[in-house]
Amino acid sequence: MSTNHRLFGKKNSPMRVHMEEATAIEQIVKQLYEMTEPHLKRDLVVICIGTDRSTGDSLGPLIGSKLENMNLKRFYIYGTLEKPVHAVNLVERIAEVKEKHSRPFVLAIDACLGRMNSVGKITLAEGPVQPGAAVQKKLPSIGDIHMTGIVNIGGMMEYFVLQNTRLHTVMQMAETIAKAIGETDALLPEKTASPSLLHSLRLKPQILLRSKNEPSM
């Protein structure tokens, strides 16, 4: 669970849209595509942070499970209802991502508390997110870019607020974000092999041909 928009510097110029806007998904897709398109040679990783033990903090795992069921071609998904990424295992999962992926480009997703008139808004911006900041937990920042959804009002009794957040709000927001990421994935081209790998593949037929022509010992 992150804090609200006050964490973001002015230079980030975050995109902010309410989940009920008619063009919400379209706006998110456009922004997310522009952010990820320059990094197509890297592994694109989505880390959905949160836990299903708290209604307000279940946004990330809900999104992760929806994305996992989409069989995406470009985005690798971490953080689902079955295998959540949360405060207890965040450091371990970050290490896992770094080990499994070549120069990962990470989109971090987390729920967020904010002002009353901001509930329902989704933010997408450059830079990392600070998980746990809203409930005074010191966790490592994560993400090359981040997306947050404001699920309820912040300012006091954050744990109580999270536990009493409307599931409908979280589910609606999760659906909007998951659809946007799915549509972005469909627009991105298939991942191609690295130049060094392509070079080695082009050499293989020549190597095989030479080996066949060589006299046996």
Rank of each mutant, 00 (worst) to 15 (best):
Gly155Leu: 11
Gln163Leu: 06
Asn164Gln: 05
Pro128Phe: 02
Gln136Met: 11
Pro140Ile: 01
Ala133Gly: 10
Gly132Trp: 01
Lys100Val: 12
Pro128Trp: 07
Leu59Ala: 03
Gly60Asn: 07
Val46Ala: 07
Ile122His: 01
Asn164Asp: 05
Lys137Phe: 04
Arg42His: 11
Asn152Lys: 09
Ser141Met: 10
Leu40Lys: 11
Ala87Leu: 10
Gly155Thr: 13
Gly60Tyr: 03
Tyr159Thr: 12
Ile63Trp: 01
Arg103Phe: 14
Glu68Phe: 11
Asp110Thr: 08
Ile145Lys: 02
Ala134Thr: 02
Phe75Glu: 02
Ser54Phe: 05
Val106Arg: 05
Met171Asp: 00
Met70Cys: 11
Lys41Ser: 15
Thr165Trp: 04
Asn164Thr: 11
Gly79Met: 02
Tyr159Trp: 14
Arg103Leu: 13
Pro61Ala: 04
Gly149Leu: 08
Thr176Ala: 09
Thr169Cys: 03
Thr51Met: 09
Asp57Lys: 07
Asn117Val: 08
Glu175Ile: 08
Lys138Pro: 00
Val91Leu: 14
Asp144Leu: 04
Glu37Val: 15
Cys112Met: 10
Tyr76Arg: 13
Asp52Glu: 08
Leu90Phe: 13
Asn117Lys: 12
Met35Arg: 13
Gly120Ile: 00
Leu113Thr: 03
Glu96Met: 12
Pro131Thr: 04
Ser118Asn: 05
Leu90His: 12
Met171Trp: 08
Ile63Gln: 06
Phe160Met: 14
Leu107Gly: 06
Gly79Ile: 01
Ser118Ala: 07
Val135Glu: 06
Ser54Gln: 13
Gln172Tyr: 10
Ile63Met: 08
Gly114Tyr: 04
Gly60Ala: 09
Pro131Ser: 07
Leu40Trp: 13
Leu90Pro: 09
His101Thr: 10
Lys100Leu: 14
Glu92Leu: 12
Asn71Val: 10
Asn117Thr: 06
Lys73Trp: 07
Met70Ile: 05
Leu162Trp: 06
Ser58His: 04
Gly50Pro: 05
Leu67Val: 11
Pro61Gln: 01
Ile177Val: 15
Ser58Glu: 06
Ser141Asn: 07
Arg103Lys: 15
Leu81Thr: 13
Thr148Met: 05
Pro61Gly: 04
Lys73Leu: 03
Met35Gln: 14
Arg115Ala: 13
Leu72Lys: 02
Leu124Phe: 11
Arg53Glu: 13
Gly60Ser: 08
Arg42Ser: 12
Pro61Met: 03
Ala178His: 11
Arg166Leu: 07
Leu40Met: 14
Lys179Gln: 15
Gly143Thr: 05
Ser102Asp: 15
Glu99Lys: 15
